[in-house]
Structures are given as structure tokens and as C-alpha cells.
Amino acid sequence: MPNFITQKGNLNNKIVHAKDCLNLLTDDEKQELVNNKTDIYFEPGEHIVKKGILANNVLYLTKGLVKLDIINESKQTTVTILQSHSFIGIVCCFAFRKLDFTATALTKAQVSFIGMDIFEGFIKNNGDFALSLIKHMSGMSNQLLHRLTSLSQKNIDGALAYVLLDFRSIFNADAFELPMSRVELANMLDYSKESVINTLSKFNKEGIITVDDRKIKILDRNNLEQICKLG
């Protein structure tokens, strides 16, 4: 079976993770999931979900990074970056007949498409799974609200520092390659592309980071964390 439904879960964590939910399926349910899911591979920049498509499947990101975008009044905003072993837009899947977001691969990605009828059957028949899914969705919603609120209250310096530290955590390294263009960063931060470029340049000149196209190296993490906190 795929590793995401055989690894040991840890429901003592503050946030219940997606794979913890799946690990609460019975052996028969896990086998039913395996027999009925469809795995699709995506290249960087390829759309996984487009706003307006029917919510026929629950999507599970097995490998890669994916960004979630919401479009309001023709303005596109990146609301979160999803890592491996995450549901894609699970909070929206059960709310409307059509999905209200766009999901795009930032790196090569593998996504499991699980039929909505199969998934709803698990919810109806497995109380432990249903409860863990509610806890997961609640935790993710809370995390997303705090993230968006925090970013909206920061100036460009603080917001960019926040996101750079976020990517440092994702890649678990001080040196990494941004999986986003300057325009995509601007959409995430709700600032102009020029502001993002100028601030990256300023951080570079001040010796906080080095920048080489999309390659970033954090040289002074303490300073960056202070800018994030105060910006």
C-alpha cells in the first residue's frame, strides 16, 4: 500500500494531519481507497484544479508543492502553499458543487484523485475517521486565517521575511530555490512585483540573504526573524 496510509499517525499533535486521518481507515477501507483512487502526475506550473470544475473528487497531494489561489473581483491571491501529504482544498470540497479555487503545481507533483462518493462513504461509516477529518479541517482553517491575518498586517519587509522563513521551513535549509516567480510572490503578499524585487534587492545589499534569480540563501536568520516580527 502507498506510504501515506501505512505510516503511523500521531493524533497527539496540535493539528491533525491529512495522513493521520487516512490512517484511521479500516484495512478494508484502505484497500477500497487504493483500488479506486487515480494517481496523476503534474509538471511545475501545470493546473491541478481550475476554479469552477465540479467537486467530484477529494485530492490528496502525495508528493510535491502546490499553491492554492482564490480569485475575487478578477484579482488572484495565493492563500497557501501545500506540502506533500496534504489534502488539496479539503475545506472547500464539501461546501459547493463547484470548486472555488485554483491549484497549481509549483514543483513536480503526484496527486491522488479519490472519488467523492468513496470518501463520503468513509465519513458515514467510520466515526473515528470522520472526527479526525473535522479536526483536520478545523485546524487547517484556523492556520490559514492566522496566516492571512498576519500577512495582511505586515509591511512589505515583514511580509517577505515571513514567506522566506516559511520556505526555509518547507525545504528545511537556509539555501533553497524559490518555486515561485516574482509575480506569484507578489500575489501571495498582496504587494506589487516591483516592491518584491526592490525588497529582495535590499535584503541582499544588507547581507541578510543572497539572491541569484530564484536561488535564495539566508545569511542572517536572526535579522530576518526580527524583520518578520516587527515588520
Rank of each mutant, 00 (worst) to 15 (best):
G89I: 05
H47F: 14
A55D: 05
D28V: 14
S74V: 04
T78R: 04
L224K: 06
F96H: 15
Q226H: 15
N72Q: 06
G115W: 00
E194F: 10
V79I: 15
V111L: 04
D190K: 15
I118H: 08
L82D: 01
L189G: 04
I227K: 11
K217F: 01
I88P: 01
I5N: 08
L82T: 03
A95I: 14
S138K: 05
N222K: 14
K215F: 11
R168S: 12
K135N: 10
L145E: 03
S86A: 12
N72L: 06
N35R: 12
A55V: 06
S132C: 13
S201V: 03
S181I: 09
L224M: 02
V91A: 13
Y162Q: 11
F176D: 04
G127A: 11
L99D: 00
C21K: 10
M1A: 12
K51M: 10
L165W: 02
M1P: 03
A173N: 15
V163K: 13
T77N: 12
S84G: 12
V34F: 10
F171T: 05
L230N: 12
M188W: 01
Y191C: 01
N126Q: 09
G9Y: 03
I70H: 07
D100S: 09
L33Q: 09
N187A: 05
T80W: 00
T26E: 03
A105G: 01
T6N: 09
D27G: 00
E206W: 01
K202E: 13
P44E: 02
L230Q: 10
D212R: 13
F176Y: 14
L224I: 04
S192N: 08
T77M: 01
H85T: 02
I218N: 09
